[in-house]
Simulated assay, not measured.
Amino acid sequence: MSRTLLPLLLIALLIPPQGASASAEPALLEMERLAWRSARFEASKLLFRLKLRVELEHLPAAEASPLLWRPPGEEGLLPRGEQVVHLRLDSRVAGRHREVELWLDSADGRVLQRTSLDHKGRRSHFKVHRFREGGVVILRRRPADGEEAERPPATWSDVRRKVQSWSAGAGAPSEPNALLPLLAAAPLERKGDGITLPFFADARVIDTRFEVVEEGQGSYRFRIIGEGGKGEKRKHRREVLVVHASPEEEALSFLGLEGKIEVVLDRRLRVPLEIRGRAPVVGEVTIRLQSVEPAGR
């Protein structure tokens, strides 16, 4: 996945810069606990095929803020923490290719901005979700025809903008695509630990409860990438936490899995070893870690 694709698209949209917030609040989530910087996952069952690559980095708030879109006439959320977690996901699910970038506030995991590029030929579309207090501003670009679809998304002429709002008491949400780093940063250490987080999905905020239902050890086959990107895929004996994610509504989905999701979390690396849930038509699916690159390598 290109490390600069979506930021360059935003620059091409002539989005003016925005300054960083001067205030910071105590962290609910500990983003510094993220002990990995990239991971790759796969799943296969009948017609369901998934390949996912996740990359993340920590940026100073002052460096990240100018990269965020400032919608005319709107005031987007600014980071309250000293850092912003920049998350990139490149997924291929059931023939659908999507690139997503998220900018998360390190103070509480709320999403500041989401950009997505869906590759569908003439039906491709590029979206920017810029979150603000009590809502989100959405900019969508599509190609007008097949010829335009061959050009960069910043040149697509079918442009629409809309604003969505939610109740004042809903809280500042995160986003389902941020599930992996949020689980890593959440205060989940032993059986019975839990946390409830709000997510923006299906044009509304949906609370989701995460709870550790089991802890123990297990053997899992994956690769730990070392210097130079080398490493062998082999079985590793790991201490794990089994976390149940229970949204208050079935509308919440993650990587094609809907409703309740079970995550086997590596206690030390804080990376999911398995993600289990139900996909439409095919039923129960397990997404497995293929490789992980620890932070600091």
Rank of each mutant, 00 (worst) to 15 (best):
A62Q: 11
E57C: 04
T115W: 09
L68S: 10
A203T: 13
T4G: 02
L87G: 00
L28F: 06
G194D: 07
E55F: 00
Q18C: 08
T208S: 11
R276P: 00
K235C: 07
R33A: 13
L59V: 13
D266F: 08
P26V: 07
L89H: 00
L52R: 07
L68M: 12
L47T: 14
G171F: 10
D118Y: 14
G277W: 08
R130S: 15
R270S: 05
F200Q: 03
E232H: 04
I15M: 11
L46M: 08
A185T: 11
L183T: 10
E30S: 10
L56G: 12
P272G: 06
A251S: 15
V54F: 01
V264G: 07
G134S: 10
F222P: 12
R123V: 03
F131N: 04
L52W: 01
R238K: 13
R161K: 11
M31A: 13
W156H: 11
M1H: 06
R297A: 09
G109S: 02
K260G: 01
L52G: 04
F210P: 04
E101I: 05
I11F: 01
P272Y: 05
A94Y: 05
E189H: 15
T196P: 10
I261T: 04
E175L: 01
P280S: 11
L255R: 09
Q113F: 06
V100C: 01
V282I: 15
A24W: 06
K127F: 06
L68Q: 07
P17Q: 02
E63T: 06
I11P: 00
E239N: 10
T4Y: 02
K230N: 14
P26M: 05
G169Q: 14
R288Y: 04
V136N: 03
K127D: 15
S44W: 03
V136H: 02
K162N: 11
L241G: 13
H236A: 12
E239V: 02
V243D: 01
R132D: 00
T115K: 06
R80Q: 14
E75N: 14
A39F: 08
L56V: 04
E75I: 10
P247C: 08
R140D: 14
E74N: 02
G283K: 09
D108C: 06
I261N: 02
P173S: 08
P153V: 09
E227L: 14
I206W: 03
L47P: 00
A201V: 14
R122N: 13
I195H: 13
V213M: 03
A39S: 09
E74V: 08
S124P: 13
P173F: 07
F126H: 10
R234D: 07
A149E: 13
A107Y: 03
A245W: 00
G81F: 10
L139M: 15
L183Y: 03
L9M: 05
V281M: 13
E232Y: 02
V100L: 02
F254E: 00
W69P: 04
L102Y: 00
R151F: 07
R80T: 12
F200C: 02
N177V: 04
E274A: 12
S106C: 05
I261L: 10
R234I: 07
R151E: 06
H129D: 10
E75T: 15
E284N: 12
S291N: 03
S253T: 12
D145E: 11
K230G: 11
